[in-house]
Amino acid sequence: MKPFRILSKNIKDAFKSIFRNFSLSFASIICTTITLIMVSIAIIVSINVKDFTKAIENNLSIIVFLDRDSSIDDATNIQKKLKKDSRIDSIIFESKEDVKNQMQKESEVFNSIMSEWTEETNPLQNEFSIKVKNAENLKAVSESIKKLEHIDSVKYGEEIVDKLIVTFNIVEKATIIIVIALILVTAFLISNTIKITIYSRKNEIDIMRLVGTSNIVIKLPFLFEGFILGIIGSIVPIIITIYGYILTYDKLNGHLFSNIIKLENPSNIIFKVSIVIVVIGAVVGMLSSYRSARKYLKI
């Protein structure tokens, strides 16, 4: 078959030329490798960050502090009203006595101070700890609770979540910018490699054109060269992705800092991430060599 003959000749030519300009090919491969490692890290981090924020939001509870002069009866009334709200998942009541006891257990200093408090002098407040079914409703639920009687204040850790999300966003954006910059550098290096290949074969290309070789046949080896450079450059990043992530996952026992922040299971993502990396490598390699072929072949 004619297309296959041309194809196999082109692939052979591409490999030959990679070895002919080995130092430059090597530089492009290294650059591709570094870029793709960064890309891989960026992808894995952003997948996990999305999960973290979700997990954190779902674990949030609304803490409702009742007025200091409110009685247990008032609290029961409020609890009854809250139970009617379909957005609320669970309600836990803690009287100021409970809170006091808990704090006493936690530290000796607290214990010595608080043991002198009586029912009347206890400055703490009765409180509810409320979980909502959907994290998006946190704000709305807290607003409606604020309108009830005997409510002193409602807190739901809004600032912390916002800060976390902002931090994660910055991290994500920074990695995206770094990755784009690295991809550009890689593209530049690969297209430079191809440019030098084209110059080193200028004579041959001129003769090819003069004896009636079609443009596509002239261009193909260069496209293959870029493609192969990209693929070779993605081998090490894939190995690092697979083993690096599995190792990290095992070392951290599947979670970061605390049990709330769970890492994505390796089997779910390493395969997908590897494919993305190969595709990026191959596409960047091919596009940058195409650019060079267009610019410097002038055919």
Partner: peptide, 10 residues
């Protein structure tokens, strides 16, 4: 043979 090869002839 060069022109023929680049034309993909057997």
């Amino acid at each position: 043979a060069f022109p023929l090869e680049s034309m993909g002839i057997k």
